[in-house]
């Protein structure tokens, strides 16, 4: 188990965003989290990545307690994430967007006098190639299409060479054709590098095609989890998911 949480609780005033959430992820698997809006999916990602501290409960990554560590420390331990609204550097080129992450990963952020060396550029180009950005590398991030912006956000997460990657709705707002491109790319990288992935998704087709495991959340609780085939059969789940669609 590369990641597990113990009884996570998070309330925002009256709203119960997380209610005794126990989650565990096996190395190298793709787990999707689904559920209606407000179910607590993004909150869960935020708690795991250190953005917000839980009220109660703990998060363990590779057997270390990472509960409420500062986000940058958690990132350094090997957890990358992408955001619902793409968190990229609008004024920088695609190349630089990736380079910044590589610089951090290689520990070269404090190199004040050196040039941006071969190693940085090589690793950056690797990522750009995997995600299909080589031709667009000198474009400014703000000039990219929405789908590309989302993909860039994901590319940055992977540029950290993470062991676990948290993706918050990587295909939302993207056209159907782009969706499969994005998901295929992500899926290939995950399988190639043996990365573990936790993906929040709304598109059930994608969820059923790519996941090893599915977790269903509703009003802050996990109400079902299991293999895609199991979840498909689950009437309870059907009711909850369809009820809001």
């Amino acid at each position: 188990m590369i990641l597990y949480t113990k009884n996570l609780v998070k309330h925002f005033g009256e709203v119960k965003a997380l209610e005794n959430v126990n989650l565990s992820l096996e190395k190298g698997t793709i787990t999707s989290i689904v559920g209606p809006n407000g179910a607590g999916k993004t909150t869960l990602i935020n708690v795991i990545s250190g953005t917000i501290p839980p009220d109660k409960g703990k998060v363990f990554f590779m057997n270390k307690d990472i509960t409420a560590l500062l986000p940058y420390k958690i990132a350094r331990m090997g957890i990358g994430r992408s955001f619902q609204i793409p968190a990229i550097y609008n004024g920088l080129t695609v190349l630089d967007n990736v380079r910044v992450a590589i610089i951090s990963r290689l520990g070269k952020a404090n190199k004040i006098f050196h040039k941006i060396d071969k190693e940085i550029n090589e690793k950056a180009n690797e990522i750009l190639e995997i995600f299909g950005f080589l031709e667009k590398k000198n474009l400014l991030a703000q000039d990219l299409s929405h789908g590309d912006r989302k993909l860039l956000d994901v590319a940055i997460a992977f540029a950290l060479d993470p062991k676990l990657v948290l993706l918050d709705e990587p295909t939302s707002g993207v056209s159907t054709s782009e969706k499969s491109i994005i998901m295929n790319t992500i899926h290939n990288v995950i399988k190639e590098k043996g990365v573990t992935a936790l993906i929040v998704e709304h598109d059930m087709d994608i969820v059923f095609s790519y996941s090893n495991k599915i977790i269903v959340m509703h009003q802050g609780e996990i109400i079902a989890e299991g293999k895609p085939s199991q979840i498909k059969e689950d009437k309870n789940v059907e009711r909850i998911l369809l009820g809001v669609e």
Binding site: S49, L70, P71, Y72, K73, A75, R76, G80, R81, A87, I88, Y89, N90, G91, L92, V100, A101, S104, R105, I156, A159, L160
Partner: peptide
């Protein structure tokens, strides 16, 4: 450009 993002890359 994006302070928060930089935190999240470590």
């Amino acid at each position: 450009e994006n302070t928060i993002r930089v935190e999240f890359i470590g």
